[in-house]
């Protein structure tokens, strides 16, 4: 392709290329799902969904705390639960040798999952 498609760039080219190049090369990983690594591929999908639910619970919890409708005791119990959830998630990630980056699957038209 010979056409230059950049119509406006008010910043530095490096800023652009450094950031977008990274997100594009991440999507190459989806070509690697094959019979050999299908199990860890499944673990990835399952854990990503679990992580999604955990983050939704987190968000909901923060809104509840913000609303001021909880007592300090309740806030503390909430903190304990959320912390334990997060630690459990870290354990699972370690067990399957997955990082936060691995769990963020690109859904194509939907953007990234997390």
């Amino acid at each position: 392709m010979n056409d230059n498609k950049v119509l406006v760039n008010s910043g530095s080219n490096d800023e652009y290329t450094n950031n977008v190049r990274k997100s594009i090369s991440d999507t190459d990983s989806k070509y690697e799902l094959n019979p050999d690594n299908v199990e860890s591929g499944l673990a990835k999908i399952v854990l990503t969904l679990v992580e999604l639910i955990r983050k939704l619970i987190d968000k909901q919890a923060m809104r509840r705390v913000e609303s001021g409708s909880l007592t300090e005791d309740e806030i503390e119990r909430l903190g304990e639960t959320l912390m334990k959830l997060e630690l459990k998630m870290d354990e699972l990630k370690n067990y399957f040798d997955l990082t936060d980056k691995d769990l963020n699957i690109n859904l194509g038209p939907l953007g990234d999952l997390l």
Partner: peptide, 9 residues
């Protein structure tokens, strides 16, 4: 660099 951006996009 503009070519770079074009290719990445």
């Amino acid at each position: 660099q503009s070519k770079d951006i074009t290719v990445l996009e």
